[in-house]
């Protein structure tokens, strides 16, 4: 829009026509309330800052690594922390700090990718919960069937079938998550579908598409965001678990889970070598869970209209 086409602002007393960007402002307002609450919640803020830091490390890893994460210094294996190697070296004499930094990106990447794959369950669940009937019957049966298989076993199967790689780890975890996302989305959509405002919207002539997109989705968003953020946490832990079992990302690419597994395999009598990677994994998981909790609170309070 050019400057000369801008309409004159109407006098405030008789503002019959709302200003054009009202629509966009309305949309912004809707989300900003939750975001604002999230930013005033201390645990959420800490989690967000930590996640931002971890992401920065993942992006700028090559600038931050003091050593080559893959270079083996066999004369310096299993060294404790010192001025040369801040967090010591591993059983092949590789610098632990550099490997942690290098491993950030693959760790995050598999977690996010796995969750994204799992999120395929969300639209299916929303549809199932809203439409009920045959659709929900079939999808629900399939998802229950998948849920009855122990998740690790399922992941073994997929990795065994497709081979070890970062992508396959994400895929395995993602597929395990699909029915879980389905359940959450289905429950959320179903409870929204029973709300009076859904009947009111139907009474005023809304079709199924609009009901789903404009009413079900926004109202089911809270529980879904919570689930998503916690799912990432779960993926991180499952991925670490897979690494410990030797089914994670194959070497030499470092991941936090893989490092924990190496330390465990080669130095099980000592605690320290396991600590850095273990702590980081726990921190990462906690960040996502805290964020999930805070999102739930923020949504809950936004709904009840409290400050």
């Amino acid at each position: 829009m050019t400057a000369d086409t801008v309409t004159e602002p109407a006098p405030p007393a008789v503002s019959r026509t709302p200003p054009p960007p009202l629509r966009r402002r309305l949309a912004r307002l809707r989300h900003s309330r939750v975001v604002r609450r999230l930013l005033t919640d201390r645990p959420a803020l800490v989690a967000l800052v930590l996640l931002a830091l971890i992401s920065l490390v993942a992006v700028f890893h090559s600038l931050l690594e003091p050593h080559d994460p893959l270079r083996q210094e066999l004369s310096h294996i299993n060294a404790g922390p010192g001025s040369e190697h801040l967090l010591g070296t591993d059983y092949l004499g590789r610098d632990v700090l550099s490997r942690l930094i290098e491993g950030t990106a693959p760790t995050l990447w598999t977690a996010v990718l796995g969750t994204l794959i799992g999120m395929i369950g969300i639209p299916l669940g929303l549809l199932g919960g809203y439409l009920r009937g045959v659709v929900d019957g079939v999808l629900g049966q399939v998802s229950d069937g998948l849920l009855s298989i122990p998740p690790l076993l399922f992941a073994f199967g997929i990795i065994g079938f497709m081979g070890r790689s970062s992508l396959n780890t994400a895929l395995a975890v993602g597929i395990v998550l699909i029915p879980r996302f389905y359940r959450v989305a289905q429950t959320a959509a179903r409870s929204v579908a029973e709300e009076l405002y859904m009947e009111a919207a139907r009474a005023s002539g809304c079709g199924p598409g609009r009901l789903l997109v404009r009413h079900v989705v926004p109202n089911a968003l809270g529980p879904l965001l919570v689930q998503t953020s916690q799912a990432i946490g779960v993926v991180v832990s499952v991925q670490a678990g897979l690494s410990v079992l030797g089914l994670g990302t194959p070497p030499p690419t470092p991941t936090w889970g893989g490092m924990l597994s190496d330390a465990f395999d080669n130095n099980a009598d000592q605690i320290f070598p396991m600590l850095p990677s273990a702590v980081l994994i726990v921190v990462l998981i906690l960040c996502f869970f805290t964020l999930g909790d805070s999102i739930r609170d923020a949504y809950g309070r936004a709904e009840r209209g409290k400050k």
Partner: peptide, 14 residues
Amino acid sequence: DPFGSLDPRMVIGE
């Protein structure tokens, strides 16, 4: 019930 029949996630204008 006016509280239940209006979608809580929409502004009055919408």
